[in-house]
Amino acid sequence: MDASSNRIMEVKGRAWLFGDDIDTDVILPGKYLVLTDPNELAKHALEGLVSGFSSKISKGDIIVAGKNFGCGSSREHAPLALKYAGVGAVVAKSFSRIFFRNAVNIGLPVVISKEARDLIKEGEKISIDLEGGFITKEDGGRLVVDKYPEFLLEILKDGGLLQNLKRRFDKEAKT
């Protein structure tokens, strides 16, 4: 994925359903933490739950999960593995706070919806409007999601905190 692909405002893809408390050891096992190449990490994304996950999904597909997604470790390798495997966004009833921050920081949209997991079907084509704050289902129905505070939306629009920092630092260097 192109790191400079900014202005992520809409995500479209098929839904992959997961349960509650999907932890970071399942998303990316500890033995792979010595890897720093995101494309290598991506090969092992969620391998303990769905064998060959990274080769089965299509770019832009969306994980739709229950509560407390990403609980456990602070490893940024976990959202990185998902992003580089091609996951376009994660929708969950709730997220662990470190995973949520990490995902926003690396430019992987994470969306909180209390009802999505119960109303979206496996494989259903959905789209998420990040700025508008809603999910559109295959049948055209809309699900409202929690809106981001303005500064978080800015980081996501920039494509992640790295690009956001770069912009801020380059600006300072010029003045």
Partner: peptide, 10 residues
Amino acid sequence: TGIGSTEMAS
């Protein structure tokens, strides 16, 4: 509190 690597760079 714990944070991720990109946040830590910041």
